[in-house]
Amino acid sequence: MEYRLTTPLTKEALAPLRAGDTVLLSGIVYTARDAAHKRMTEQLDRGEELPFPIQGAAVYYVGPTPERPGCCIGAAGPTTAGRMDSYTPRLLDLGLAAMIGKGARSQAVKDSVVKNGAVYLGALGGAGALMAASVEELEIIAWPDLGCEAVRKLRVKDMPLTVLLDPAGGDLYQSGPAAYLESLEKK
């Protein structure tokens, strides 16, 4: 199935999504990776506001290359999401609706995705030029000292994504290879 979704995302909009479905995402996506997640967690510990409204938000684990003159973004494929696992359940509990990245997540993240009716969406790993093509605007909104790891607000149109973890507990990294291997047995 293919779904067109626009941020902010509601649980109702995410509920029908299943691992392996395609999502074309439009609206606002915030970027954050290791260093930004560490700082966001420290903000929460101190009782401070996060750099962006977390309720219904989509976070993209990405550190783009510098933009060339006349381009709004450089190459912008996903980074390995597992490095953010330890920070993630807390953000999901606060209303984070979608994570965009690549690679397997911990059991704690999977459980939290189901509990909160959230999704984990896959961008194509190593396809920096392709993923950048759906970004229309970029603004650094926090921690410019972090360079490529600064928090950016991206406006995206029809960003092509694949559902990796769904609200019903589906996991494409389990079901995808299993379905392929099963197809070989049937031959």
Partner: peptide, 23 residues
């Protein structure tokens, strides 16, 4: 998926972008 990775190589060439953001 492999086709999209090929498209990415073409797009990187056309737009003078790095193939992957992790340079």
């Amino acid at each position: 998926t492999l086709g999209l990775l090929q498209d990415n190589l073409t797009l990187a060439g056309e737009k003078c972008l790095p193939i992957c953001q992790d340079t």
